[in-house]
Design a protein around this nucleic acid. Sequence first.
DNA 1: GATGAATGAGTATTCATTCAT
DNA 2: CATGAATGAATACTCATTCAT
Lengths: 204, 204, 204, 204
Amino acid sequence: MRKAPRQARSRATVDALVEAGARILGDDGWSGFTTNKVAERAGVSIGSLYQYFPDKLSLVDSIRRRHLDDCIAAMRTVRADGCPPMEVAAILVRAMIAAHSAHPGLHRVLLDEAPTSAEHRDPCSDFEVEYLSHYAGIVAASRKRRPTPADHAAAGVMSDAIDGVIHNAARRGSLGDPMMQAELVRLIGGYLAGAGEAAPVEES
Amino acid sequence: MRKAPRQARSRATVDALVEAGARILGDDGWSGFTTNKVAERAGVSIGSLYQYFPDKLSLVDSIRRRHLDDCIAAMRTVRADGCPPMEVAAILVRAMIAAHSAHPGLHRVLLDEAPTSAEHRDPCSDFEVEYLSHYAGIVAASRKRRPTPADHAAAGVMSDAIDGVIHNAARRGSLGDPMMQAELVRLIGGYLAGAGEAAPVEES
Amino acid sequence: MRKAPRQARSRATVDALVEAGARILGDDGWSGFTTNKVAERAGVSIGSLYQYFPDKLSLVDSIRRRHLDDCIAAMRTVRADGCPPMEVAAILVRAMIAAHSAHPGLHRVLLDEAPTSAEHRDPCSDFEVEYLSHYAGIVAASRKRRPTPADHAAAGVMSDAIDGVIHNAARRGSLGDPMMQAELVRLIGGYLAGAGEAAPVEES
Amino acid sequence: MRKAPRQARSRATVDALVEAGARILGDDGWSGFTTNKVAERAGVSIGSLYQYFPDKLSLVDSIRRRHLDDCIAAMRTVRADGCPPMEVAAILVRAMIAAHSAHPGLHRVLLDEAPTSAEHRDPCSDFEVEYLSHYAGIVAASRKRRPTPADHAAAGVMSDAIDGVIHNAARRGSLGDPMMQAELVRLIGGYLAGAGEAAPVEES
DNA sequence: GATGAATGAGTATTCATTCAT
DNA sequence: CATGAATGAATACTCATTCAT
């Protein structure tokens, strides 16, 4: 961001811009995301947008930062110590679906489509580190030990699998489908319940 | 396509265009996919591109068709009757990774970012129907019965989970990571081995 | 028009664009009328043109509207009540030549070549209705009665005849030729002086 | 034309091209007239078109020459010596309407829209000279004397007036309207019957 | 001669960004 | 500070024309 908003009015302007940007990015994708549209939707002039954000990418960075903070916050509410695997899975799945329901599509666009400004060193990394640590903690807890590198690998696969199922469901508009949810819980629960040894894959 | 290529020369041109388009779409995403770039990469003039494709979307359609045909072909090579679940999972995962290795990222862009020409009735649907049928057959076979609706739901979740893991690995450039592959096999193998009853998810 | 110009600066821009467009359309015809040329002639960037006109046709619509308004205004100045036919004809012809002198050729291009945007219901119609009513009024006045359907038919033929003579003269660059003007007056004056009964034409 | 067609086959090709060109030019106007469309409509390849015509304008020249020849031929059939003015007018009007009925619109496009190749010195002139001579002859005959310069001026105005009425009727699709035809005959007949002196127009 | 594949300058339109008011 | 007018490089697509087969 070009300059920190000092007065309340400025902060409201910045918030409106980030909110409008998130909406447009989620609804229209990266290629439908134009600065003029964002400014109009936020109810400010295009000049004001550039008063606070030096360019388009810095606006995306702000949107991303806000969204990932929200995700981490949602994740922190998950408390699954001591529960049986299936229940842990159910809690997890419910939390993830809730986190994606506010702006379905935004997450995917931010991660997949929108480019990252070269200046800000990859801001996803910080997020992913904490995110995966959380997952790894859950895996380790359900295996009743401290997190190991193997747990981190499992956490990554688990996170990506949930991501894939939810994201495709969002694309089809079937995020609420209970059968899908039940199967996803079964997939994750079974994985958590499984022993820690991975089956080998032969080289191709 | 606007015009069927008659001479050998023009068939080569069309192939070069589709290949260049697939590469650019996979590497640069929908917003980096410009007809001029495709023509240049294919080594032909922009006029030649429009001799065969009436507009940008029809080129995307051709790319999609070719890619989905490749996916289906890869899928058909999977013969898993009578194998234990873990082995089925390993075969499946290897096939899917192979199918995505040629143009990592292309699959996602085609499904998520690139718009579909209104004229061609959704060509993904045909693909998805056959694709999921295949998956459902595998699930049912490993449960030693004919495919049921529940098997179709399981197939969808399984397919999306594999998709998510592979796609995120592709994004990070770690498609070849053996630990990831092993964990993915364990996830899918465990799911296939599990009984057919889904665990319920409480209403939120 | 896409956007109403608020500041004085932008109103000047819009005026310059319409004026430049009229000039180019009249001089170079529809196929020589390119948005880039118009913007350049108006001394503004191509972006500014599209700030006010959503597309090429809307610019043509504005040009047409302005031109037809000018024509109607010129027409309204004609006051011929109680004059002898030859004098009415002279006044009419002088007014029409004056109306076409500013942008000779523009009228024809607007009516014949330039396509009409589908959105605006044919704006020529409104114009033609008022235009012909005026003509019919003149015809009826010179016949000392209220306008009848026959007067409307006569008005149409008269209007088209004047149009044809003036337009061909404009094409040859001889709009100012006094002999042509005199003959045209004689043609129209004689027509107005003639009795109201039309001579029949045998079927071909 | 680039080269004279020697064999019968070549002549047929050239004829097909000219005919297809006339059709397209009349129907779609100058801006819809493309060489590829003409070649396709004529059933020959674009290469063959350029075998006979060095460029687009030379094709237009051929179309124009053929059309004007047809017009002159139609004009030569008019024999009105000794008839009363109204009858002469009726014959004239009928002939002109017939001449425009084959390709309505083509005449206008050739004269107004289509540019003339710089090489061929204005090919319209030759045509117009003979055309106007014919008209002047008719005017003079109805005035029972040899053609004078004043008759030429009258012929020009008369020709342009008829042109204007017919062309606007063609545009509105009302070429067959008998009331219009009758009024046009009355206009021209009255003009022919009038004395030879023109009424003066004051300078503007 | 005939064919049609290939070319590329030109045209309409968008959008990130600047700057005078 | 806020506004919105102005800019112009970039993009999708057309069409006259050439030339290898």
